[in-house]
Design a protein around this nucleic acid. Structure first.
Lengths: 257, 257
DNA sequence: CGACTATTTGATAGGACTCAACCTCCGTGG
DNA sequence: CCACGGAGGTTGAGTCCTATCAAATAGTCG
């Protein structure tokens, strides 16, 4: 089962025909090595990319050389559903590890959404969640301390990986280097290192060799003031144990554009 | 001429019929006082709001009481074009000054977009720019120093106000208190005060009693590493003097959803 | 005039940065 | 097989930017 199918299944129960349509659209797989940019379009004029394996990020460079990582993409995430122009403002998509991705030409993607309204709705959810995630990162950078930011990011990525079944026994791959964590959180690499040590000393996580072990999610999320609502994940055991967020209807209303 | 018409005119040349349609849709005007929340829907189930005068912001509160201002809205800006649910994650819309706004019920807005494809395209541009602005704020909070952040925000708001003709002789209304600037930039009010004094001492700006005087935009934007491309403003004298950003086609391609 | 909010100033503390060195792990090639 | 080099991670010392606390001043509105 492709990651996009898993991800869309977070929002709708895909019919067999829908699964087939998605799988067919994701047929063309490309690979890039860690650190490489993911080209805006490996096929022709405009394409939507879906991460199949590995992790990628969107980042922006300042003229003084500093880099800000804007967002992270995990398997099942769509990239560029809203990018309308080829020159998207020196924002680039970059692989954080070896990345496999599917590329769907824009026309084929439009067809997929037109032929399957429920898929279109789920894709809209993805775009909406991406924006909400961006806002949550903004809150982190503006209001959270170093250890809270780091804890928050780890909580988020952990749940997002869990949503596409990439967590096993509280362990998942997390290929970010400390330098990349630093650029994502607006901190120095040295400080990331020390803060990471604090989190380890508190017995909240283990993180080494690109693998994250979640030892105490509850404490970590309390420290981070992490409220997973914005991710709109399917209700897992974890979420069910917490207060139910039934306030969120699962079916998106007709969108305004 | 309503601010929404002015704003849309940044992207398309509105025909008389289109102007009329927009003006008609914006007929219902509401007012809130500074500091008040702007209700999600003053009419009925779901409505799009357009700032007519004054400024508003979207903000989020953390459980520890800290507040992050996510974005600022100036006259002509649309709010909630993408908000699909009524419980939008403790994110609230708040007036920064006395605000007049028009509220268009969702069905009427959909009709407006359907009847006038060029208006729909321009509205998409607005949503796209809003997202780009969010990313730019993220870069600010992550990578810019206090004085750079403040300079960047002032540059942005100044140009946005200019785009709707609210700048006269390099002066515009800017009703943000220092506390609000602090919450927008992730800094303490005290530090905002001192940083503001630095900018004044450098003769870059004057800011007092809710009015901003831009004395040296070039120096301010250099200090901020400000690149206005992301705002996609119409080419003004200022922009024409700089390198032309003709790379951006003005007409948005068919969007993917 | 008094109450309130917004701004300003001073003093001190602390969180995060910088610089610099060292260590560890791996893949490469002599 | 081991030396080498490079990338990523770790540690220490010192500094700086920004926060905090506290109090005074200015401005506003009834």
């Amino acid at each position: 089962m492709s990651p996009m199918v898993k991800r869309l299944s977070n929002f709708i129960n895909l019919q067999p025909a829908e699964v087939d349509a998605v799988e067919a659209a994701c047929a063309r797989i490309f690979t890039v090595q860690a650190g490489q940019p993911i080209p805006h379009d490996p096929i022709n004029a405009g394409s939507i990319k879906i991460i199949v394996s590995g992790m990628a990020c969107r980042c922006k460079y300042l003229p003084n050389g500093r880099r800000q990582i804007i967002s992270c993409m995990v398997p099942g995430d769509l990239c560029d559903t809203r990018i309308r122009t080829s020159r998207n403002g020196d924002q680039i998509l970059q692989a954080l590890s070896r990345v496999e991705y599917a590329a769907i030409p824009a026309p084929a993607f439009l067809r997929l959404c037109n032929d399957h309204p429920r898929i279109r709705d789920a894709v809209r959810w993805l775009a909406y969640i991406e924006e909400a995630t961006l806002r949550e990162w903004l809150v982190s950078l503006g209001q959270r301390t170093a250890i809270e930011r780091l804890a928050h990011l780890l909580c988020e990525l952990y749940l997002r990986l869990e949503a596409v079944k990439l967590v096993e026994n509280n362990v998942c791959d997390l290929p970010l280097t400390q330098l990349e964590l630093a650029d994502a959180l607006g901190l120095s690499p040295v400080h990331i290192n020390r803060t990471l040590q604090d989190l380890r000393a508190m017995q909240f996580i283990k993180l080494a060799a690109g693998r994250l072990t979640m030892m105490d999610f509850t404490s970590l999320s309390n420290l981070a003031m992490f409220d997973p609502t914005y991710l709109h994940l399917p209700l897992s055991e974890r979420a069910e144990n917490a207060q139910p967020s039934a306030q969120w209807e699962r079916s998106p209303r007709a969108d305004l554009h």
